[in-house]
Amino acid sequence: MARTAVPGRLSWRVATVEAARRETPSARTLVLRVPQWPGHLPGQHVDVRLTAPDGYSAQRSYSIASAWRDDGLVELTVQRVEDGEVSSYLIDDLEVGRPLELRGPVGGWFVWRAAPPPVLLVAGGSGVVPLMAMIRARGDVRGRQPFRLIYSVRTPQDALYAAELARRVRDDPGLDVHFVYTRKTPDGWPEPPGRLTVATLNTHGWPPDFAPDVFVCGPTAFVEAAADILVALGHDPGKVRTERFGGIS
């Protein structure tokens, strides 16, 4: 991990799609092999650039979903954006074996650095991606920091990594996951669908006295609502790290 500290300016690299898998009907994970990849920290992202034959180019940021394992592989999970020219290409058209231009890793602030305090992760939709990298990194080193993920999705079918999260809750000691369903719940769910509330964060988060490291990622409106609630509950604003990806969930 220390190798991410290599100084020098950033340039574009050409990765190759080594594998791909469908996560949900509207999301796909790309497993990329990146030459001379320096390694990354959980929470960092990459910029992806597509260039058309006529020179038109479009650039987007994607969070890295995988923990770094020194194997040259980087996983990105791409959620379809309505009318998104980049996401639709990455989900529908980009085939295994094809090149993809990217640069990174970037962003040193929305990053979990294995530290003793408990951690609260709050995800809205595909905002779970960088938080999943944190959960995976903790799992890889058999971390003991208590981790709680509160994950807001529209319906059960929209949850990314659902099977892996269920397995990790069983196998990774000290990891808890609580789902919030905003449009449709699973059968028998004790609450009607609804947005993240003060009660959710109060019940399923950590008390402010525990001084947890908090990471909130999702659409801008979701992140601002969640961060406001956390601060109102007494969390130190300086310990609430946020990443907004704009748009609507």
Partner: peptide, 24 residues
């Protein structure tokens, strides 16, 4: 266009600077 945050500038700033300015 909805607002995002300074995290989204990390790549463009790292093209200019040898350090990660988003943590500044």
């Amino acid at each position: 266009m909805t607002a995002v945050d300074g995290n989204a500038m990390a790549g463009d700033l790292r093209e200019l600077f040898a350090v990660d300015v988003t943590t500044a």
